[in-house]
Design a protein around this nucleic acid. Structure first.
Lengths: 115, 115
DNA sequence: CACGTATATTCCAACTGGAGTATATAAAAA
DNA sequence: TTTTTATATACTCCAGTTGGAATATACGTG
């Protein structure tokens, strides 16, 4: 699987991660909430664990899976440079809109929304 | 290709995006900087454009590609809930280390590193 | 021990995406 | 117009991934 990006490319795995963000869950709980066959859940969890996205502890027959921060932080880190980029874009857009505002003398304040 | 996550799952595409973060580039420039065959570059750019990651303008024989903010913001948005999660983790870690510090009375300040 | 429950693993078929090579298109240059 | 430069597309091949079904493993309970 190799990279964290490939791991989160799979929709079911993203769903599982989103489930785990609130609290740890057993395989069975995930299975029911996502309406997906148990072997599928186990297989995706395997991938997620190998990549360090989750860890598990044993609770008798069941295993509880919970999130681990590392890999997602990696994604976040990769995103950082782009974040700077699109902030610049938002700025530019705002400056633009500001100029629009100044041109027309304040057309009755309103949440920007065309029709 | 469908989802933004699948698009950025490909390493070469991530490389291209990273290149474009500084400024727009022509296909040839990308080709040279990444040492990858031209058809490959074109194909990946096609995928990136279809998914809205980049846009292009024509400059005689060459096409200049530049970044568009949308899709990456989408990734960022998906990441948001997890960000809250791992911030909690960092906090917990810090509180833990703080307690360690209090326990032992200041062992000669030092960059935490064993050995 | 036998049985039920919870989870993991294996095997297989189908599909998909990427690499490589060749070729098409279009614009500039000679 | 012919040639060269820049980019896009088409085609084939191969590897890896996913889903499904069956099966294996492990634990708990009677």
């Amino acid at each position: 699987m190799e990279s964290v990006f490939e791991v989160i490319a799979e929709p079911n795995r993203r769903a599982i991660l989103s489930l785990l963000v609130s609290s740890e869950q057993s395989v069975g709980e995930i299975e029911r909430q996502l309406h997906m066959p148990q072997p599928a859940v186990s297989k995706h969890l395997r991938v997620l664990r190998d990549a360090g996205f989750v860890e598990s502890t044993v609770d008798a027959q069941r295993r509880l899976y919970r999130l681990r921060p590392g890999p997602l932080q990696e994604v976040d880190a990769w995103l950082a440079p782009f974040r700077r980029f699109w902030l610049a874009h938002v700025d530019a857009l705002e400056r633009h809109l500001d100029r629009m505002e100044k041109a027309k003398p304040a057309p009755a304040k309103r949440k920007t929304r065309k029709k």
